[in-house]
């Protein structure tokens, strides 16, 4: 069994009396150590799938196997535990705590682990992570004193602090210029190659998706393209394969 297995995932939102199906039976599998891009236009269900993959939401139907566990029906608290231990998140708008030093931002997820790290250990680990993303000289800087690329690197350090096997990046370069974007994406590749971290990039940008080994294209709640592709992005494909 692969590291991530999706079996016929459906998600339907209920708005008043109207049922809005967003995901209409998504099946996919991602092996450990893969670098995958989840692509799709806005409104395609890409974000919903990302939320389900990230254990932030649970599917209406279907099975989601993560690291040998069927997590789709976990309680919110168990999902929080899974997020804490196995998943790292990087967001488009960085989501750093304002007026808090980079070091403290990075150490924040450690407050919620079951590991009993002392403050010194936590700070040491946070410092290591910041060094790894190349911010050794920005430890005590607050987000407002950092550039966008630096902020995103703090966010990556924060996502990695609990040494998760999977890293989710939701439009990680959406707020960055092309040069910085390339740097950040390079960092993802490096993490994927050198540390064997499974990276899942969510993006609508074909240029960003090109950095991944494989692209999963979503359109209208269904996966339309799941093959490995190093070529340019394919055009929108109506109908598709269920």
């Amino acid at each position: 069994m692969n590291f991530i297995e999706l079996h016929n995932i459906c998600k339907t939102y209920t708005m008043g009396d109207i049922q809005v199906p967003v995901l209409k039976g998504v099946s996919a599998s991602i092996a450990a150590g893969e670098c995958v891009a989840l692509v799709g236009a806005s409104g395609s269900g890409k974000t919903t799938l990302m939320n389900i993959l990230g254990c932030l939401d649970h599917p209406t139907e279907g099975e989601y196997w993560l690291d040998g566990e069927e997590v789709s029906q976990f309680s919110p608290d168990r999902r929080a535990l899974v997020r804490n231990h196995k998943l790292g998140f990087v967001f488009q708008n960085f989501n750093l705590l304002a007026r808090t030093s980079a070091l403290e931002n990075v150490a924040m997820p450690l407050s919620y682990t079951s590991e009993n790290l002392s403050d010194r250990q936590a700070r040491r680990r946070a410092r290591e992570m910041l060094c790894r993303v190349g911010l050794a000289d920005r430890l005590e800087h607050e987000p407002s004193q950092l550039s966008g690329g630096q902020q995103q690197r703090v966010a990556i350090a924060r996502a990695l602090i609990n040494r998760p096997p999977v890293l989710f990046a939701d439009e990680p370069t959406g707020n960055l210029d092309s040069h910085t974007s390339a740097e950040i994406l390079q960092m993802f590749r490096q993490l994927n190659r050198e540390d064997g971290i499974t990276v899942i990039l969510v993006t609508h940008d074909a240029d960003v998706a090109r950095w991944a080994d494989r692209r999963i294209r979503i359109h209208d709640g269904l996966i339309v393209e799941g093959e490995a592709a190093t070529s340019g992005p394919g055009g929108p494909n109506e109908g598709g394969r269920p």
């Binding site: 929080a80 998140f89 967001f91 997820p109």
Partner: peptide
């Protein structure tokens, strides 16, 4: 709100 969302995303439970 965003901070709360972030804390939840990195593993904070409701009771935390």
């Amino acid at each position: 709100t965003r901070e709360i969302g972030l804390r939840m995303a990195v593993g904070a439970r409701k009771r935390d």
